[in-house]
Design a protein around this nucleic acid. Structure first.
Length: 655
DNA sequence: CTCCCTTGCGCC
DNA sequence: AAAGGGCGCAAGGGAG
């Protein structure tokens, strides 16, 4: 696919929405509940000469919203697009597709193909965000596009009231919607035309997944709130137990929740040694750290510090991952949570999930309002990897959760990108990279470790060290940091000397990796951007001798690995989409290297084989022009809930 | 009281 | 000199 081509092949569309509360306008899952609805639908075809609009206002004071009438209008659009084989174009079209789903048009939605101007813009220009302040982030909104490219139209959205039902206001809204269509058309065409061919391919693969994400966002996830209550109570008991043994030492909830107060207690009152300080990048102010790693180190010598760590953890987990689930299901009113997948939410192309929407609520003083966060979902990407926590998310009745995860994803892409012969060999069938690294570290025989890793303690520990090394050292981690991670996250005792040995052994074993680091940095400095195997790009420009140089170098190294992982995931989703539709399965959520599906119970056995076959044989050559030198395989797990996933074995599955 | 910034921390 | 990367969310603390 090259230039934009015949304008007649595209159709833009846009919904305006409202609700019984303003905030419901952005929550399409409330449409079936009657709490949200479309107020204006417009679609546009441009024939190269002039704009041809269709659509209409869907409610005002005189003509209240009629679900069936609105549905018929949307159906007309989707049917025409399907029959004429048009590409449907939107701006953040994932949202507008959710509205279509709200009108019960799923079959027609999936009969069509989509393109998204916002997505194309991101593919054209994305930069890493070294500035943590979200206010300074690049906006990719349609309004921002208009401000930048058509400044004479900037501010066309002011004066528009989405919730005023007077016929005059609705007429203005509808006219505004027409403008949105025109700008969407101009923006999408512009960004499509300026993309390089390989960027277009990456964008198209991603665009194919848009309806899958829209459906997942719309449907939400079912929460077993009884489990949530049990978990919440358990965490309350855990916290109380910890506090009981700590309160004689002056610990309170208020102190533990405050880093400043906790530092005073730990270091001034208890007189513990200060192992680490934090320094603000902005003000340069230092503070004595009370983070988890510090508490872990202190806890090796002092039981109280260990207790503080456990106490704080229980408090945090309860709020964020147990109570938040119940709160969200209550807010949504459908016993579901709707964490919203944001396609291309990161500069590396990986997804993010939003758990809340911005809204306003009553202020403390009468007649005032304040900004609040509406709990539409939960922090899916951060959910604790523990059965009790993940078990809260269950499959719908009649369905099974299936997980497919790309085996050793980052290790394999690093092997490919670095071309390191040892790494590549370790990705071949029958090899075990962690045993190999463990053998190198311990000075033992590789096959002895592999064969005895289950029974022999020495072999087991060696492999464990090898695993930490393989997982931690791919991206320039120091020996010191390795030790902290091993001790505080993997619970592996490690001296400074041992950490240095592992650090040294890693670079000695995979000599191609440090070479890749250097080459990648040099290349990026030269051309000013980094590229993935799927053709995705990120701009890296700035002062290579300045304070951001370490970050810029890291982007150069890291992006081809993480970004290619993202490409792989989108390609995987696009390739399994037709099969999922065939068997009545659907995409549920994503976790970077894992794809989670809801599959009808009686189709699980077949799907385990068929989907794995598709995924193990993805068309990298056709899609990216790249032939992997090693197998890129996927593992399959199944279960009744996220927390209940087990490795799938065809023999057991058949019983 | 509200808003903004920082710290800490969950995941891959 | 030393430095894994990518995120979003909860909570405290201080400015206004």
């Amino acid at each position: 696919m090259s230039e934009w081509g015949d304008d007649n092949n595209y159709l833009t569309f846009d919904w305006e929405t409202s609700g019984t509360k303003k905030e419901y306008a952005l929550q399409p899952w409330r449409i079936p509940q009657g709490r949200a609805w479309g107020t204006s639908l417009v679609w546009l075809r441009h024939d190269g000469e002039k704009n041809r609009f269709w659509g209409g206002v869907q409610d005002d004071e005189d003509n209240p919203h009629d679900y069936e009438r609105t549905r018929e209008l949307a159906k007309t659009m989707l049917t025409m697009a399907r029959d004429k084989k048009l590409t449907i174009v939107g701006w953040n079209v994932q949202f507008d597709i959710q509205v279509l789903l709200g009108y019960d048009l799923e079959e027609l939605v999936f009969d069509n193909k989509y393109l998204d101007g916002m997505l194309l813009w991101k593919h054209y220009f994305v930069e890493p965000e070294y500035d943590a302040n979200p206010k300074n982030r690049q906006s990719y909104s349609l309004k921002q596009f208009v401000r930048e490219f058509m400044p004479h139209h900037a501010g066309y959205e002011t004066e528009i009231d989405f919730h005023d039902r007077s016929p005059e206001a609705r007429a203005a809204l509808h006219a505004y919607n027409k403008k949105d269509n025109i700008f969407t058309y101009i923006g999408a065409r512009h960004y499509w035309n300026v993309l390089e061919p390989q960027q277009r391919r990456a964008a198209l693969a991603e665009a194919k997944t848009i309806p899958m994400f829209a459906r997942a966002n719309f449907q939400g996830l079912i929460v077993d709130t009884l489990s949530s209550h049990d978990l919440s109570n358990k965490l309350t008991r855990d916290a109380r137990r910890e506090l009981k043994s700590l309160q004689h030492h002056g610990v309170t909830e208020e102190i533990v929740r405050s880093p400043a107060k906790l530092a005073k207690l730990l270091y001034d009152q208890w007189g513990l040694p200060v192992l680490k300080e934090t320094r603000s990048k902005i003000t340069g102010v230092t503070a004595r750290s009370t983070d988890k790693e510090t508490l872990h180190e202190l806890g090796l010598e002092d039981e109280r510090a260990k207790g503080v760590r456990n106490y704080r953890e229980a408090l945090n987990l309860k709020t964020k991952f147990a109570d938040a689930m119940v709160k969200s299901t209550r807010y949504n009113g459908d016993f579901r949570v709707h964490p919203q997948a944001i396609i291309f939410g990161t500069y590396s192309g990986r997804l993010t999930y939003a758990s809340s929407q911005k809204g306003t609520g009553p202020g403390v003083r009468a007649g005032t309002t304040k900004n609040i966060l509406l709990p539409i979902g939960f922090a899916l990407h951060q959910m604790k990897n523990d059965k009790l926590f993940r078990g809260q998310v269950v499959a719908p009745v009649g369905f099974t959760v299936m997980e497919f995860d790309a085996a050793g994803q980052e290790f394999r892409w690093m092997a490919i990108k670095s071309g390191d012969e040892t790494m590549l060999q370790l990705c071949m069938p029958g090899e075990d990279a962690h045993s190999y690294m463990g053998a190198k570290i311990a000075g033992r025989d590789y096959h002895w470790i592999m064969e005895n890793k289950e029974e022999d303690k020495e072999a087991k520990n060696a492999r464990k060290s090898g695993k930490v090394g393989n997982l931690s050292l791919q991206y320039r981690t120091s020996a010191r940091k390795l030790r902290v991670v091993a001790r505080s996250q993997y619970d592996i005792p490690m001296t400074e000397g041992e950490a240095k040995v592992i650090h040294f052994t890693y670079q000695k074993t995979y000599t191609g990796v440090p070479k890749y680091w250097r080459a990648q940095i040099a290349l990026t400095r030269k051309i000013g951007y980094v590229e993935t195997l799927g053709g995705r790009r990120v701009q890296v420009v700035g002062d290579w001798g300045g304070p951001l140089s370490w970050s810029m170098e890291s982007t150069s190294i890291n992006y081809p690995i993480q970004g290619t992982g993202a490409d792989q995931k989108y390609l995987a989703m696009a390739c399994i989409a037709p099969y999922l539709r065939d068997i009545g399965a659907y995409f549920a959520w994503d976790l970077h290297d894992g794809i989670y599906l809801f599959v009808p119970n009686d189709k699980v056995q077949r799907a385990a084989v068929d989907i794995k076959y598709i995924l193990d044989n993805l068309p990298y050559k056709r899609a990216w022009g790249f032939s992997p030198p090693i197998p890129l395989t996927w593992d399959c797990k199944t279960g009744p809930s996220w927390g209940g996933l087990r490795d799938y074995h065809p023999d057991k599955g058949a019983k």
